[in-house]
């Protein structure tokens, strides 16, 4: 089967590999600690750890876009900021 039409590149493969690894990691976490750890954080509504991952990924997308639009194409600092944001989401949301 020829998948050349999908136009894979190493950076996009790494990107999707990371997303897949995160999902597998969440599944393993759920296996060892079932229930999703629901709680009320600073947003004052209930979130599970799946919600917190979603908020982290969505927010990271916008952080990277904002960095790209306002500062420039060097996204390593945006990635670092996204990681800090994700840690804060998992800690406080």
């Amino acid at each position: 089967m020829n998948f050349s039409w999908m136009a894979w590149t190493l950076p996009t493969a790494l990107f999707f590999g990371t997303i897949a690894a995160l999902l597998i990691g969440m599944a393993v976490w759920e296996y060892f600690s079932p229930g999703g750890n629901p709680r009320h954080g600073i947003l004052r509504f209930e979130t599970t750890r799946g919600d917190r991952l979603f908020i982290s990924l969505l927010g990271s997308g916008f952080i990277n876009l904002a960095w790209l639009g306002l500062i420039g194409p060097q996204l390593w600092w945006a990635l670092a900021l996204s990681l800090v944001y994700a840690i804060c989401v998992f800690r406080f949301v």
């Binding site: 999908m6 136009a7 590149t9 950076p11 996009t12 990107f15 999707f16």
Partner: peptide, 13 residues
């Protein structure tokens, strides 16, 4: 998922 992956791949090329 596969179409979305393809769109991501196209967006950087």
């Amino acid at each position: 998922i596969i179409p979305l992956m393809t769109v991501v791949n196209y967006s950087v090329q």
